[in-house]
């Protein structure tokens, strides 16, 4: 991947052949990102296209929530306006979380580095001969991140509702002991969904667009004390936005996989009460 005369070897610059003189293992982090991301994408694609095993009473996989297509019984809490949709119901709504993450400032950094090698790491020459950043189609569309953030708030609310539902009393056939059919319930699935939704909210609220909308856009914090307070909170969350991005990615996958295992009957839910 020799760089020609457009980057660090341009005429006039100090003549050094090497693309980088870094001696540390700079490739480790982009490589790890690449592997884990690819893994997630493969997993998510398979699960999204499967169109089944996404509901195990009372748990609904986040990949399918809200379930607006021709979903299995009990999964649709918001009706089935897209009942005519011939494919997997996940594909109807997945565009929102997908778009949200694809345009996320943190993920952009991660995949520009790991997948596009632009740049692979700091001080390491990238292989491309030309570069126009996010100034042209399609990358200029990254600017719509805020639209996706508005959507993500709605998705977050739906997922929160799902968690509430995951506490709901179980029908008789699932009863733990004798005739237990009423009162709220909690199983490992509920716990996983709860953790997931917390991480999703941390991720959504620590978003840079959120930070901007709640207060960042102001010039006079002193005149808007409440928004300033909100902004400081979001700013604090925002410093770990990358962490929330990863954790929530894992938690979504874990919840979905757990539900998949339940739905296919491979395991039994662990019941706490």
């Amino acid at each position: 991947m020799a760089t020609t005369d457009h980057g660090v070897t341009s005429p006039g610059r100090a003549h050094i052949e090497a693309r980088t003189l870094r001696q540390d293992r700079w490739w480790q982090s982009p490589l790890a990102t690449f592997v884990v991301f690819s893994g997630f994408v493969v997993f998510a694609t398979i699960r999204a296209f499967m169109g089944r095993d996404y509901y195990a009473t009372p748990y609904l996989s986040p990949f399918y929530s809200p379930c607006l297509g021709d979903c299995v019984e009990g999964a649709s809490d918001f009706g089935q306006p897209f009942a005519w949709w011939p494919l997997s119901a996940a594909l109807i709504i997945l565009v929102f979380p997908l778009g949200f993450r694809m345009t996320c400032y943190y993920y952009r950094k991660a995949y520009y580095r790991a997948f596009w090698l632009s740049p692979p790491a700091c001080g390491v020459a990238e292989p491309h001969t030309s570069y126009s950043g996010e100034t042209r189609f399609p990358l200029i569309l990254q600017n719509v991140h805020r639209w996706f953030w508005y959507a993500a708030v709605v998705v977050g609310l739906v997922l929160t509702f799902d968690v509430v539902l995951a506490f709901r009393p179980m029908p008789a056939e699932y009863a733990l002991g004798d005739g237990e059919t009423s009162g709220i319930h909690m199983g490992l699935g509920t716990l996983l969904m709860l953790v997931n939704v917390v991480l999703i909210w941390l991720y959504t609220l620590s978003c840079h667009s959120c930070r901007h909308v709640v207060g960042g856009r102001l010039r006079h914090f002193s005149k808007h004390p409440v928004r300033y307070r909100l902004w400081t909170w979001v700013s604090r969350l925002n410093t770990s936005h990358g962490r929330w991005a990863w954790y929530s990615l894992f938690s979504v996958a874990v919840v979905d996989f757990y539900i998949f295992l339940l739905a296919t009957g491979r395991i039994q839910d662990v019941r706490f009460f």
Binding site: Y105, K109, R113, P119, S132, G133, L139, H208, H212, N238
Partner: peptide, 28 residues
């Protein structure tokens, strides 16, 4: 042109959070 890959922030000796506090808010 900036694709927020954050190398500037990594090297800033003053610890200025160039991307998070400067570039991204400007993009917003």
């Amino acid at each position: 042109m900036c694709n927020i890959t954050k190398c500037c922030t990594e090297v800033c000796p003053e610890g200025i959070r160039i991307t998070d506090n400067g570039i991204i808010p400007m993009k917003e």
